[in-house]
Simulated assay, not measured.
Amino acid sequence: MDISLEGKVALVTGAGPNIGSGIALALARYGAKVACNDIDVDAAKTAAERIERNGGTAISVPGDVTDEEQVIGYVQAVVERFGQIDILVNNAALLGGKGVLDESAEFFGRAVEVAALGNFLNTKHVGRHMAENGIRGSIVAISSSNGWSGSAGVIAYAFHKGGVNNFVRAAAMDLAPYGIRVNSFTPTAPTPDNPDLIAERGAGGVLERPHRHGIGGESGTESWRRPARWTGQRPPMVPMGTTGTPTDIGHCVAWLCSDYARLITGIDLVVDGGARAKNFAYFPAAAADTAGPLPLIPLDITGELDQEVS
């Protein structure tokens, strides 16, 4: 099966250096022209430059996914440049946060706003473009393992990712008559494999840094506090011994956006090494004692990865 996105145009929101950039690169390597959006102008530009270094065609379209006028503006900019949009990947989200006892109303509200309006506004305006022009396109929302199961220390993230999951099912019903497919994709915390990110932050990138208020991270110092039970070591808890990388995510999203997935809509595709399927009482063998997955098929051909994917 030779997956090809030739002739298609993709818009990826939240195309920052980790998952978003990996998905954008994958879509380009499979043949799509890609528009990279991020609220950070430099992040959008860097994602587009990474694609071009790898022989693809890309533009940056920075903008705030919660501002309808800006969304309309960058959607129109993509259409003016490339003529159409066939693929939308809703990846923009606020990471991190705190647990329910400590999170601020301000952060909670903004995190939910980015996910809710980001998915809604982009799906609305790209969906209208597709429907009006008879484009039987594909829309993918990036969910998270935190949207399906409970984790300490990320109450806002867990809330909005859970909302993303049902948004996808409802939007899939709205858009099915137009031949437009809407699905979600669930990874779990991947090991960064973007050479730029590795060069900046070292092997493991953002995920190796201490989580001050991450999953099960420390909160207050009151005498009544109970300790979080999360140690921060993910791979040993994954049946296949690895959480994978954005490249793993990119390959699967590209397939989901291809014509081979023409009847797949309203579903969630999980790529997490078996993490979600695992029973709570099952403790996997050490990664060194498992066969593990097949070798990664790389997408970034512009530099050697100076890390082992673990």
Rank of each mutant, 00 (worst) to 15 (best):
I85S: 04
A10V: 00
I180A: 12
P195H: 03
D196T: 12
P62C: 09
V112Y: 15
A176D: 02
W230Q: 12
S223Q: 10
G22D: 09
I23G: 06
E200I: 00
G31H: 11
Y282V: 14
D64Y: 04
A203G: 13
L25V: 03
P236I: 00
G244Q: 01
V65Q: 11
A10T: 04
G20P: 06
T186H: 11
L305Q: 03
P236K: 02
I301N: 12
G163Y: 08
G150F: 10
E106R: 01
H160Y: 15
G274H: 10
S151D: 06
A286W: 09
T247P: 04
V34P: 05
G109K: 14
V79E: 03
G241P: 09
C257W: 03
T302Q: 11
S138T: 00
Y178S: 13
E80V: 06
E308C: 06
N133P: 14
R226T: 14
G14L: 09
Y178T: 02
V100Y: 00
I51P: 01
V206S: 14
D289P: 01
V238T: 14
R50M: 15
K33A: 13
G202W: 00
A176G: 08
M1C: 09
G22E: 03
V114R: 10
P187F: 09
N37Y: 05
V89Y: 12
A287T: 07
